[in-house]
Amino acid sequence: MIAAILSLTVLGAILGIALGIANKFLKVEGNPIVDELVDLMPGSNCGQCGYPGCVGAAEAIVAGTAPATCCPPGGKALVSAIAAKLGLTVDLSALGDDGPKIATVAEELCIGCCRCARVCPTDAILGGPKQIHNVFREACTGCEACIEKCPTEALVMKPVPVTLQHWVMPKPRLA
């Protein structure tokens, strides 16, 4: 009886010390998963999530204080990637995502005020003062930062058209 108690106590103590030492010496600086999430994210630091940049959002998602769905430019694809990485189950159907969107300028409404170009995180809007502005499709991340700055509502979000080159065969429905 005493031998059993003793041996278990000693075992517990040794293992506890080992764990303590391991914690001290094998400590992981920062959370590697945060970096992995940052790699997945659009990286434009647009701020729509309400966190300071993509790193902030990634930290919040890992900490569980932000939902995986907090990044609008990332869309469904990002949500499913994050969910896969963190092992979360996310209801994608509630996301109401119909593909990525990008900003487009309604040329008849643009007054050339340059306010949109100033906030764009990727410099995707081109145009001088008093000139009609335009959006580079390839550079726009769809962060919507410019939309509310426009005084004439000339900027609208439009879905990126699917082309033959970008079309993906749909996954078969599950049996």
Partner: peptide, 19 residues
């Protein structure tokens, strides 16, 4: 599509960095 997205992400990051 994933490859394209990655290229695009890299380009976006570069743009944001340049800005």
């Amino acid at each position: 599509a994933q490859d394209r997205n990655k290229l695009r992400n890299d380009a976006t990051k570069k743009l944001a960095q340049q800005r």
